[in-house]
Amino acid sequence: MKDVGEIKTTHLFDMVVDLHPRQDMGEGPRGRRVHFGSAGGTFEGPRLRGDVLPGGGDWAVFRPDGVMVLDVRLTLRTHDGQLLYMTYGGRWVTPPHLRADLAEPAKRHQVDPESYYFHTNPLFETGAHQYTWLNDIVCVGTGYVVEGGVAYKVSAIV
């Protein structure tokens, strides 16, 4: 086996996504399907910043074991008016004793993010010339709950 070294990352941006109330589609063949619609938000980092546009969201599945499987699609608009398509999957693993608090909108942002596993794998698509470098990178993100939505620290794998 070749030694290719450790995975290295660099900070891409921090993002807050404001969410509409969840839409529960009920139990399906893979688990309970829930839609968390994006109501907007912001992102900011060393090389790009802007707004999360309304209309995207997370078409999540809660598996029978309580793990949430993410399926997120968002449109970002940069500070200079360019559009970026951002997608990511991921896993949000919550210990059983925290599930009731995380399901409660008034309490969920008070739960310590160190007490759950919430990670994503963002990818981007754009035709905006100054941002085409995003088309060729793989990212990792760490999520946590904030009042009214979720937030992420997103890093590019270098």
Rank of each mutant, 00 (worst) to 15 (best):
L70E: 06
D71I: 03
D71W: 08
V72I: 15
V72L: 14
R73M: 11
R73N: 15
T75D: 12
L76R: 01
L76K: 05
R77S: 13
R77E: 15
R77I: 15
T78V: 02
T78E: 04
T78M: 05
H79F: 04
H79C: 04
D80E: 12
D80G: 00
G81F: 01
Q82W: 14
Q82D: 15
L83M: 02
L83E: 11
L84E: 12
L84V: 05
Y85T: 00
M86V: 15
M86K: 01
M86A: 15
T87W: 14
Y88R: 07
Y88L: 09
Y88T: 12
Y88S: 08
G89K: 02
G90C: 14
G90P: 01
R91T: 03
R91Q: 09
W92Q: 09
W92N: 10
W92F: 11
W92D: 06
V93K: 15
T94M: 14
T94S: 13
T94W: 05
P96H: 02
P96A: 12
H97D: 15
H97F: 14
R99E: 11
R99N: 06
R99Y: 04
A100K: 13
D101Q: 07
D101M: 04
L102P: 02
L102S: 01
A103L: 09
A103K: 10
E104G: 06
E104W: 00
E104Q: 07
P105K: 09
P105F: 11
P105Q: 15
P105I: 02
A106S: 08
A106W: 09
A106L: 06
A106Q: 12
A106T: 10
K107R: 09
K107T: 14
R108N: 08
H109I: 13
H109R: 13
Q110C: 08
Q110T: 07
Q110L: 08
Q110V: 05
Q110G: 10
V111C: 14
V111W: 08
V111R: 01
D112Y: 03
P113A: 10
E114G: 07
E114V: 03
S115V: 06
Y117D: 10
Y117V: 00
Y117T: 03
F118Y: 11
F118A: 10
H119L: 06
T120K: 05
T120A: 06
N121R: 08
N121S: 07
P122S: 13
L123P: 01
L123G: 11
L123I: 06
L123V: 10
F124R: 01
F124N: 05
E125M: 00
E125S: 07
E125A: 05
T126I: 02
T126M: 01
T126N: 08
G127T: 13
G127W: 01
G127C: 03
A128E: 14
H129C: 06
H129V: 06
Q130V: 02
Q130D: 12
Y131K: 02
T132H: 00
T132R: 02
W133A: 12
W133P: 01
W133V: 05
W133I: 01
W133L: 02
L134M: 05
L134F: 09
L134K: 01
N135A: 05
N135G: 14
N135C: 12
N135R: 00
N135H: 09
D136R: 03
D136L: 02
D136K: 00
I137Q: 08
V138Y: 07
V138E: 08
V138G: 06
C139M: 03
C139Q: 03
C139A: 14
C139E: 11
V140E: 13
V140I: 14
T142F: 11
G143E: 09
G143M: 04
G143H: 01
Y144P: 00
V146M: 00
